[in-house]
């Protein structure tokens, strides 16, 4: 068997893991599974595309590829702006929709349903704005480098792995070493007690949305750079995201990342062993297996 599947799996897994960290954070702090999270990935990718396009027209030098990579300075700059915009989008959706359900103390399942409606609206809005034709960050071709051991990767792919590592370590440190991280964990344990203890729950909720959306934006841009940008990229990744969040254990950031890598590797393995057309079923099989054997996931707490 060709060992290249390890590299492909790691990169796909990095994207899934970054998205799953956002899912697991919203799930543990806001207490509902957000079906619109996939759309944050797609919106992140398209926002970055739009901003990069605008920067490119301002100054042509920004689109000239930086030495080993396939994109120019326009993309990293656009990524930073897009992260902020995606965060604002998540906050806007929360303000318009979810906050009023929280105020009323609606059942969890109503929020799940609202997120379902929001995902439909957000995705079709992208289709309306950008049409369903695939778009690309760059048209440049890259030659994969030999890494030894039969593995090959393009400089872009290695950069993606690096960015993922930095993002996850940052989020992990934020959650464990800072005040806002401690506050977030306290709210996920017990929101009522946390607010009595003087924690600003609304600030925690805002941070959670922003953090989840930022990671989703990074994952969306990576997915767009790796393959292409379509309005459905987020929707197609939603099942792997949920599977990774549940496999990792709800609320666990390292768990979600590790589970994302596991799912990415399993998908890549299945593509080689069974065929690419069954790729999307892998996360379903893993999800069912987790629910049967260990519903709380690898690092989850027993309910």
């Amino acid at each position: 068997m060709n060992p290249q599947f390890i590299m492909d799996g790691l990169i796909a897994g990095a994207i899934i893991g970054l998205g799953a960290v956002g899912v697991t954070l919203t799930y543990s702090i806001l207490r509902f599974s957000n079906f619109a999270h996939g759309e944050l990935l797609s919106w992140g990718a398209y926002l970055a595309l739009a901003v990069a396009g605008a920067l490119g027209t301002l100054s042509a030098g920004l689109t000239k590829p930086i030495a080993p990579f396939s994109f120019g300075w326009a993309l990293p700059l656009a990524a930073v702006i897009a992260i902020g915009l995606t965060g604002l989008l998540a906050l806007a959706v929360d303000a318009l929709l979810f906050s009023s359900f929280r105020r009323r103390g609606s059942a969890i399942i109503i929020m799940v349903m609202a997120s379902f409606g929001a995902s439909l609206a957000l995705r079709s809005l992208l289709e309306f704005l950008f049409t369903s034709r695939p778009a690309y960050f760059t048209k440049a071709l890259q030659i994969a480098m030999k890494l030894g051991g039969g593995l090959r990767a393009t400089p872009d792919q290695l950069l993606m792995l690096g960015v993922t590592l930095v993002s996850v370590v940052t989020v992990h440190l934020l959650m464990t070493r800072t005040d806002i991280g401690r506050a977030m964990r306290a709210v996920s344990e017990n929101p009522a007690l946390a607010s009595i203890a003087g924690i600003d729950v609304r600030r925690v909720i805002r941070t959670t949305w922003f953090l989840g959306a930022a990671l989703a934006c990074v994952a969306g841009i990576m997915s767009g750079l790796l393959i292409q940008i379509r309005p459905y990229i987020g929707h197609d990744l939603l099942l792997p995201l949920f599977a990774a969040a549940i496999l990792g254990g709800i609320g666990s950031v390292p768990g979600a990342m590790l589970a994302g890598l596991i799912i990415g590797l399993c998908e890549a393995l299945a593509v080689q062993a069974v065929g690419a057309e069954w790729r999307a079923a892998v996360s379903f099989v893993i999800l069912i297996a987790v629910l049967l054997v260990r519903p709380r996931g690898l690092f989850g707490k027993a309910s």
């Binding site: 929709l97 009023s100 359900f101 109503i110 349903m113 609202a114 379902f116 409606g117 929001a118 995902s119 439909l120 609206a121 957000l122 079709s124 809005l125 289709e127 309306f128 369903s132």
Partner: peptide, 17 residues
């Protein structure tokens, strides 16, 4: 046609609200 779907999604949320 995609605007038509946006309308369903927004409508669903508005009804819930």
């Amino acid at each position: 046609a995609s605007l038509q779907i946006v309308a369903i999604g927004v409508g669903l949320c508005l009804m819930l609200l």
